[in-house]
């Protein structure tokens, strides 16, 4: 039972990550491989504030949000002025720098990370059992998804798609393209940071290995296979992709084989999807 709860919590977390990356990548067309780094920023801000400064979980959320928003804006303003695909290379750089910082700064406790992070509490009411934590993650996921869906269906989402297709044409219709690109990047990265905050507190252990390039690429895979440019795609795709490999555990496969098998499964899935259904599970149009 605990095991199933853990998977469900994981699914909720990954849905928010996939949906927020989808805003950046699927809607605005900014291919980004630094999403896990921003999740890491949120996780570490929350952890350090809770463990070392004794803040309550709820108070760390605005701090994590603000911190990630400022960092992503600092990165976005110069790099998103560049047109075309250069941004993907820049996001590689961002990911490497942030992973390296997490691994080497004293304040992030280097490669050891933090253990025993307090569970989330709201107004003095602490959520301790895994069952309660599932509802915390579910609530968080629903709020984020509703927010993202509103954004995507507002004129904002339409303008992002227009930018993805043709920046010059969008500009000549009177839209400030750089502003919209920076805005969606900051929003998406801030959502990822919030996910990191919840992740740290729910799992109560973090280290730099949870926020590496591999993880960033895995999140992009979730967004693409679910269906880029659709919020629904990420919601439908994530549970399938997270839950399906778990079947291996019930097939009496030894864990040493199950790990590599899982990766092979993902690799095959990506190849098959790109060959037979590049639009993902849910088509944008």
């Amino acid at each position: 039972m605990e095991y199933v709860l853990f998977i469900l919590i994981n699914i909720n977390m990954y849905i928010v990550l996939a949906v927020s990356l989808n805003l950046i990548m699927g809607y605005a067309g900014l291919i980004s491989v630094s999403h896990a780094a921003f999740m890491g920023i949120g996780a570490y801000v929350t952890t350090i504030l809770m463990v070392q400064f004794g803040w309550s979980f709820l108070l760390t959320l605005p701090a994590a949000l603000l911190f990630a928003a400022v960092i992503s804006a600092i990165i976005a303003v110069p790099s998103l002025r560049v047109k075309g695909d250069h941004y993907i290379v820049m996001s590689f750089g961002i990911q490497f720098i942030l992973t390296s910082l997490l691994n080497n700064l004293n304040i992030t406790n280097r490669a050891m990370g933090f253990a025993g992070i307090p569970k989330p509490s709201f107004f003095g009411f602490a959520f301790e059992s895994n069952f309660a934590l599932l509802f915390v993650s579910l609530g968080f996921m629903l709020v984020c998804v509703l927010f993202a869906a509103r954004l995507a269906h507002a004129p904002f989402g339409l303008i992002l798609k227009a930018i993805r297709e043709d920046e010059n044409a969008t500009e000549s219709l009177g839209k400030n393209v750089v502003f919209y690109k920076v805005a969606v990047f900051v929003i998406g990265c801030s959502l990822a940071a919030l996910t990191g905050s919840f992740f740290a507190s729910i799992v109560s252990f973090i280290d730099p290995f949870s926020f590496t390039l591999d993880e960033s690429i895995f999140i992009s895979t979730l967004a693409i296979i679910g269906g880029s440019g659709t919020i629904r795609g990420s919601i439908v795709g994530v549970p399938l992709l997270i839950a399906f490999p778990e079947i291996l555990r019930f097939m009496q496969v030894p864990t040493t084989v199950a790990g590599p098998l899982r990766l092979i499964f993902y690799g095959l899935l990506i190849i098959l999807f790109m060959r037979f259904r590049p639009q993902g599970i849910i088509k944008e149009y």
Binding site: R164, D166, N176
Partner: peptide, 28 residues
């Protein structure tokens, strides 16, 4: 002036090759 401000001032450019936004509907 930045292009989006020129557009807001009342100049509209229809670029070469009828570049419509293909993944949006006609109305959008």
């Amino acid at each position: 002036m930045m292009p989006h401000l020129v557009a807001q001032n009342g100049v509209s450019l229809v670029p070469q090759g009828s570049r419509v936004f293909t993944s949006l509907t006609v109305y959008e």
